[in-house]
Nucleic acid binder design. Structure first.
Length: 290
DNA sequence: CGATTTTGACCCGCGC
DNA sequence: GCGCGGGTCAAAATCG
């Protein structure tokens, strides 16, 4: 039963940021900073990434969980643009035009990042330089306390790569949705600070329904989460919330659905669109501030 | 037999 | 210009 329902309310300043109300917000952010060791990266603290995550420890109680959601410029600095470009080149080359074009275009077409025009233009330039139009799809990161790396989320994934990352002793795994028409990808990595934490970053939107719901009586939860996620994807494409990795703890963020706030039951945390990579690219709000 | 995973190599952009 | 790091590909291996 979802009982933890932190009040989620849009930032009064506008539509560019969302935050959970509550005293714990600060603590949550602090947790993030602590968790991430002050933001990894060799100095790419430029990334305009804002997110908070209240992980705390297992026994801290779920009420201590209240994700902070911030809209993130589609193209911030860092390696993301570069990677995106590279990715674009490859995908363009290997993916069936129908498939990639179908899903990708639908997303990119409605994803004109109003903010960060320069950077967007920069990125666009780089990609267009090769005659490839490619916009990065919204990303959403989850931090989950789990022993399992690859969490069930109702979709089928195929692993296509694994790479050791600089800031973490744990390798990062790359997964792609097995649906040929679906271009959604996800990266899974363990936190270097807390090995028990799995960071999953989803990229893109599923253009299909789940292959099968996870077993157990949690169907409704997951189904609801998926449905909500779909809604979210439609209403707020830039804040796409993927289905929860945990069957019994669908956690998604939907700023406009106050009656269905993120129910962070387990220890799954929804993070705002992480434009950069995973841990190494996490930048705490404090860092962003400077 | 088909699907998935593993793993090394390759490509690309960025920072120095 | 060079080196580094991230992301992806593709062939081989493994599994159901």
């Amino acid at each position: 039963m979802e009982e933890e329902r932190p009040a989620l309310e849009p930032d009064a300043s506008g539509e560019s940021s969302w935050a959970f109300s509550g005293d714990g917000a600060a603590a949550a952010i602090a947790s993030l900073e602590d968790l991430c060791g002050g933001g990894g990266g060799d100095g790419d603290g430029e990334g305009e990434i804002g997110w908070g995550l209240p992980l705390g420890h297992p026994g801290v109680g779920e009420e201590g969980v209240f994700p902070r959601l911030l809209e993130v410029p589609e193209s911030s600095s860092g390696s993301a643009p570069a990677v995106a470009a590279a990715k674009a080149a490859r995908e363009e080359r290997s993916d069936p035009p129908a498939a990639s074009g179908d899903a990708a275009s639908s997303v990119s077409s409605e994803e004109p990042p109003p903010e960060s025009d320069e950077k967007a233009a920069d990125t666009a330039n780089k990609t267009c330089k090769k005659g490839i139009k490619r916009t990065r799809q919204p990303r959403f990161a989850f931090m989950t306390k789990s022993e399992i790396d690859h969490l069930e989320d109702g979709y089928r994934w195929r692993k296509y790569g694994q790479k050791a990352v600089k800031n973490s002793p744990f390798p990062r795994s790359y997964y792609r949705c097995t649906n040929s028409k679906c271009t959604v990808k996800k990266r899974v990595e363990r936190s270097s600070e807390d090995p028990s934490i799995v960071i999953t970053t989803y990229e893109g939107q599923h253009c299909h329904h789940t292959v099968s719901y996870p077993r157990g009586g949690s169907h409704l939860h997951t189904a609801a989460a998926l449905a909500a996620a779909q809604q979210l994807a439609l209403s707020a494409p830039q804040l796409y919330a993927p289905p929860s990795p945990f069957t019994q703890s669908p956690s998604l963020i939907h700023p406009q659905q106050e009656q269905r706030p993120p129910s962070l039951l387990d220890r799954t945390l929804a993070l705002p669109a992480v434009d950069e990579g995973l841990l190494g690219d996490i930048v705490s709000p404090a860092t962003r501030n400077r």
